[in-house]
């Protein structure tokens, strides 16, 4: 554990809490892509199967349980409790176009050909692109509420901080994981456009609105 890893995890935790609070307080999931949330649920489910086989630390176990539980809770809020507010007309990204290639790639490039390891690799590849339905939705509607922008900023920051964690681990511990590093860089690059808009607009008190 190092400071980059810890702040990355905390940014991830913060993102999830912001999203849940936004939906709960406004009683609405307007502007939130259910498709991205389905992908995140698939990501956590396939990645954290090792909860039952490998114990790393209490921290590791508790965080995994929180990420799993919160992703299912978010899906419940979007697809059941506040279904009427879900903007499905703008959430039209075809997730099979992300799930299938991520799975094929995991079969081709993985650390080991065991069920858990291939599914872990699949989850890493899928996570790197899981935000695309949400970004697609923002580009389709041309805007995002400020709270949604804060959520996206925290969520994007998490993998960017993990890149610093991987550099630190490479330098200090001579430990690296190429699959996680490359996928994490792809994931962070996808947010760059959004980061730019966040800094130039949302932080100056303006709404995130794309030019028509």
């Amino acid at each position: 554990m190092n400071i980059f890893r810890l702040t990355g995890d905390l940014a991830h935790l913060l993102a999830i809490i912001i999203l849940l609070l936004k939906i709960w307080k406004t009683r609405s999931c307007a502007g939130i892509s259910g498709k991205s949330q389905i992908l995140f649920a698939i990501v956590y489910t396939t990645r954290y199967l090792d909860l039952v086989t490998t114990f790393v630390s209490a921290y590791n176990t508790l965080m995994k349980i929180f990420f799993l539980a919160s992703s299912y809770a978010t899906m419940y809020l979007i697809y059941i409790k506040f279904k009427a507010t879900y903007d499905h007309n703008h959430d039209t990204f075809r997730i099979e176009f992300l799930v299938a290639p991520a799975f094929v790639l995991a079969m081709l490039i993985t650390h080991a050909y065991t069920l858990l390891e291939v599914l872990w690799t699949f989850s890493i590849y899928l996570e790197s692109v899981a935000i695309l339905p949400q970004l697609f939705m923002v580009s389709k509607t041309g805007e995002a509420e400020s709270i949604t922008s804060h959520y996206l900023f925290a969520l994007g920051s998490y993998r960017a901080l993990y890149i610093l964690n991987w550099i630190y681990r490479y330098v200090m511990e001579n430990n690296y994981d190429l699959i996680a590093i490359v996928a994490g860089i792809v994931q962070t690059v996808l947010y760059c456009d959004f980061f730019y808009l966040y800094v130039t607009k949302v932080l100056k008190g303006k709404k995130l609105q794309l030019p028509a």
Binding site: R5, D9, H12, D50, T54, V56, S57, N60, M63, K64, F67, H111, A112, E117, W120, Y162, N165, N175, Y176, D177, L178, I179, A180
Partner: peptide, 10 residues
């Protein structure tokens, strides 16, 4: 080439 995933990171 690839170093093993240590399952520590989330």
């Amino acid at each position: 080439l690839l170093q093993e995933n240590d399952h520590d990171e989330l």
